[in-house]
Design a protein around this nucleic acid. Structure first.
Lengths: 155, 155
DNA sequence: CAAATATAGGATAATATTGTCTTCATATCC
DNA sequence: GGATATGAAGACAATATTATCCTATATTTG
């Protein structure tokens, strides 16, 4: 199991990329998909979840695409995660027990709730502007590596 | 998305219960399943993953069942998780990028790797004996609640 | 208005996860 | 040795996730 679903991860990577191009207005999803090595149709669907909650604005037709509806400094990763995966990860019992709480806790209740908050903080801290700036200035990576790059890395 | 798969969660809940009955020798899987409100066939499959890595010993026939192969004080939750879900959660990039590391990090690399370790520690700390003792002494919960219990809880 | 381009949205398919059921093999007990 | 109880293992089904493809709709451009 991964922490986040693939859809969510694709959404986050795309969001950071779109934020890095925020000054250019609408950016086409197919360009984002190409840049990140994703299926454009699949990415379109994922980003629709972000437009439906008004995080993204979309525009059809030539020179259309998507852009963020507000200042990317004010958009935290947790909003992207909430729109795609939901926030259950940050609210639910680690053992999936409904009603697990102070009154009827599971054996992991205390340690997990504490940890859950730290995890939530992690994603509440990160805003899209900072993340995208880091990508630009430090050459961080949003793409998968191709075969050759993976080989190079393993040497 | 949840942190752990359902199989893993079922495995953990069963493991804690089995540990709480460790002094009774082999305990039948169907009894465990009944106690925890799980399908016995499904649980059998999950526990087979624990016997196949020699965490559990199994015994067929009347008075058969499963029991832990070593002192439950020495079995940490991380071992159960590793056998069922694998340890990818504690080793992989949060954005699922292969080869994400110091050399070619993703924008979340630093904060996630730090957090990942804390998460791992959480599950490395907890041993089955302590967890099962907590369940017994503090009446903690391994079961799902039934309709009535859920209603009671919400009042 | 026509052509081109882009998102929206639905149909379908592939795969993984979760769950049930049946059969088999083995052990116990009488 | 026969009846019974139990885990092992595989077939199968339901559901969720991931992915692809096709059509519809809106918008721009000429």
């Amino acid at each position: 199991m991964a922490l986040l679903s693939k859809s969510c991860v694709y959404g986050i990577r795309a969001a950071i990329y779109i934020a890095s191009e925020a000054d250019k207005g609408y950016i086409s999803i197919s360009q984002v998909a190409k840049e990140l090595n994703l299926s454009s149709h699949f990415l379109t669907k994922i980003l629709q979840e972000l437009t439906s909650v008004n995080l993204l604005l979309s525009h059809k037709g030539p020179r259309g695409g998507v852009k963020f509806a507000k200042d990317t400094k004010k958009i935290k990763l947790i909003e992207i995660i909430g729109a795609i995966d939901g926030l259950e990860l940050f609210t639910e019992c680690a053992l999936g027990l409904e009603g697990c709480g102070v009154y009827k806790p599971c054996p992991l209740h205390d340690s997990w709730t504490a940890h859950r908050e730290a995890l939530r903080n992690l994603f509440e801290r990160e805003n899209l502007y900072d993340l995208s700036e880091n990508v630009k200035s430090a050459g961080l990576r949003l793409r998968t590596l191709n075969q050759q790059e993976l080989l190079d890395l393993n040497q």
